[in-house]
Design a binder for these strands. Structure first.
Lengths: 227, 227
DNA sequence: TGTCAAATGATTTTCGATAATCCTTGAATT
DNA sequence: AATTCAAGGATTATCGAAAATCATTTGACA
């Protein structure tokens, strides 16, 4: 039916699409993910939609209640705190290993990703430069930092947890400019410490970076349920 | 069609069934999980089978190659090592938190689970007492140890990792009686240290317990591909 | 003899419809 | 007025078959 041959499976495409909608906050927590409308919107059958939603549920971005279907995952303060604790532990571990194992190519990836992030952070004159763009660059930078870690399972977990964190970030009010400034210096610090192989300092900086972000989010009034 | 109303969804049932077959080693690593035969075997349509396999893939017990279907996940030395590293970190963290937060009911669960495990370990006269039974009790004991940890995400991850570890255990030759003896004392140590709230000692004991098991498995000739 | 390409068969992927379940509405009864 | 129960509609869960894709084999050609 579709004109495009699509090297990727249909289920994977709709999965990515819905995931983006959830993480970006377009689909609010708790929203029922009704099958018929979603299938129509993405122009797929219920089977492949269901497969996509199943994967989202396994990644904790959706929940499945028997005979009641899927919903966007609920959020809570306690979950964010637990999430943050896991991230500091695991992403910290991954960073340590990444710095230890990383070669020059890894350094280049970090520097490159940071450059892109720094450029995107600067508000452009023409008014464009979406926050989506910043989120993407931000994720890419964090991914680059740990990309030399050889434990693939660890990387898969940290990536998944980052997605969940990103959901909370998107739901919180956008940080003010001063907040952005802090982030800029934090990211630069991370890049410098990592590429100069200062393992302990980089680890501490990353933990504090993650923790601080959560504190800001927790202090912010989320644009959703009371939390 | 099925006579049983089944409070649980069909997909969940077949998921659990196939997972058991994989973890027990009945389905060897790399085995193609062909849809038609599996659907027939479990008396289920392709859609629900696919949903079950999708969940298995998300838990790293199966892999999905586009247009080539699902296979039982491959195993490797490096993966087992990475898996072990993650388990020591995360299960250790979970145990620490569990001991800290656990109440008397938790202690009771630990003691109870250990009692069952100890009894199952003793070979019964009638020759019965399957290793499945021991595996189940073993898993239950480890789960009881960390069951007071309040971080649900952490518990979900450790449970998933334990499943993968169990696959390696099942594929290795069964430990000799002497090995079993060591395990008995290790488990008893774990129970005592945990319930007496000796956090650091319990943590160290758990890490060593997990590490030792992996060393035994790595030393054993697995009954499968070279590894 | 070796290589390439088309055709065939097997398998995955997707679809549209049916069966099963849940939720709401409204009337009847206490 | 409150509660129970049944009927209807809406939604999920499942099915079986069609469409798309991949792997293998066969045959033609260099």
């Amino acid at each position: 039916m579709s004109s495009v041959p699509a090297t990727q499976s249909r289920a994977a495409l709709v999965h990515d699409s819905i995931r983006a909608d959830i993480v970006s906050g377009a689909l609010m927590p708790g929203t029922p993910l009704r099958l018929a409308p979603l299938a129509a919107k993405h122009d797929v059958s219920m089977s492949v939609l269901r497969e996509a939603l199943t994967r989202l549920a396994e990644h904790n971005l959706a929940t499945l209640s028997p005979n009641q279907g899927f919903r966007v995952v609920e959020i809570s303060r306690s979950d964010l705190i637990e999430l943050t604790e896991l991230r500091t532990n695991l992403e910290g571990l991954a960073l340590t290993q990444s710095i230890t194992a990383g070669d020059v190519a890894w350094e280049a990836r970090v520097v490159s990703a940071h450059h892109v992030l720094a450029k995107v952070t600067i508000p452009r004159q023409d008014g464009f430069g979406s926050t989506d763009e910043w989120s993407e660059a931000h994720t890419a930078f964090h991914e680059a930092l740990v990309s030399a870690c050889e434990n693939r399972r660890l990387l898969a977990i940290t990536a998944s947890l980052r997605n969940s964190s990103e959901l909370y970030r998107q739901l919180s009010a956008l940080p003010a400019d001063e907040e952005q400034r802090d982030l800029v210096t934090e990211h630069e610090q991370l890049m410098v410490l990592a590429t100069s192989r200062r393992v302990a300092d980089a680890h501490a900086a990353l933990v504090q970076h993650i923790t601080r972000t959560t504190e800001v989010v927790l202090a912010t009034t989320l644009r959703t349920t009371p939390l």
